[in-house]
């Protein structure tokens, strides 16, 4: 648990820098797509595909980070009315469910998806890069979800910090 509280701030910082950089590159990439249509005899053909792949990475990595910052949308109507003990139990149950989802769909499903696309050598149509690299973000974000989920489970024991930890 000590190690976890040491890792998380460093991880957060790295993730934030990575995500902000990808977002900036996304804007530049699409601007380049527009510009090349007017200045180059042959417009760049890879930008559309690259932009879509950036969006997949930003979305999945970003949603793991948004889980950590409790930004995902939910319905708090019932949990708001609960007794504090019941609320803590419900919040814990929520974390467990998210961890199970991440383990099953993102890690197991994502590893299998990545494995199949690498094994069967699928390439992206324009850039020609192995599609496995695009899908690799699924299991990565799954691991982040689990890490943040376990951290949240440890933190949420006191009813007073529940507001912050409501999913």
């Amino acid at each position: 648990m000590k190690t976890l509280s040491g890792i998380i701030p460093t991880l957060n910082k790295a993730l934030r820098v990575l995500l902000a950089t990808m977002m900036a590159l996304l804007v530049l990439n699409v601007t380049w797509q527009v510009i090349t249509r007017f200045v180059l005899p042959h417009p760049s053909s890879f930008t559309e595909e690259l932009a879509r792949f950036f969006l997949i990475w930003i979305s999945l990595l970003g949603s793991a980070y948004a889980f950590h910052t409790h930004s995902h949308l939910g319905f708090d109507y019932l949990t708001k009315k609960m007794q504090s003990n019941a609320a803590v139990t419900t919040a814990k149950l929520g974390y467990v469910l998210v961890i199970l989802f991440a383990l099953g769909v993102l890690v197991i499903g994502g590893v299998n998806l990545t494995y199949i696309t690498f094994l069967l050598k699928q390439e992206s149509p324009v850039l020609g890069i192995p599609m496995g690299y695009v899908y690799l973000v699924v299991p990565i974000s799954g691991c982040l979800f689990i890490l943040y989920g376990v951290w949240g489970l440890i933190e949420v024991k006191d009813p007073s910090n529940l507001r912050e930890h409501a999913l």
């Binding site: 879509r52 969006l55 997949i56 099953g104 499903g109 299998n112 199949i116 699924v138």
Partner: peptide, 23 residues
């Protein structure tokens, strides 16, 4: 089933038109 869901989560946002949102 798990793998199909993993694929859906990734390709569900694999659309150029969706870039309008971040921009």
């Amino acid at each position: 089933a798990l793998t199909t869901l993993a694929q859906r989560l990734a390709v569900g946002v694999d659309s150029f038109a969706l870039l309008a949102i971040p921009f």
